[in-house]
Amino acid sequence: MATTFALSVVTPEREALRTDAEMIIVRGADGDLGVLARHIPLVTAIQPSVLVIKTADGEQQLAVTGGFLEVRGDVVTVLARTAERPDEIDRRRAEEAKQRAEERLQERLADLEEGRAKLALQRASVRLQLVEDGSRTAV
């Protein structure tokens, strides 16, 4: 059995998940990042991405829309703005959000606005990616 570590995924409004995990994969500031047990203490910002959690019982995925990853000892915390399971995602809403963000990016925008639209697009894409993956494996 692989060594596990205590993982908790917390959002400002609730604790989304607490489990023992063997490995997690998430997109950090500099690209994808895998964390195994006994990882060196680390703090990094994470980008909107699909958080993959491998546990003894299999694999779970959560859509996280940005936040931070903190590794200390054998406790790993994902501080996420939001964290959703595939069944919690409102697909139509995500599609609409994606379209809205794309439209806004077509217009010429101030830097701040453009940054916001890009982030919104990223968030929506991550949600859609997760529901689409989920439905494919379900079939």
């Binding site: 500031a29 680390l42 703090v43 990094t44 590794v71």
Partner: peptide
């Protein structure tokens, strides 16, 4: 509490963290 490594570096993490701390 402990020494961390920061990715990409401490300043960037601080920059990202501060607004979120304020929102919290």
């Amino acid at each position: 509490a402990r020494q961390y490594i920061y990715e990409p570096d401490a300043e960037a993490v601080l920059q990202a963290l501060v607004p979120h701390y304020l929102y919290a």
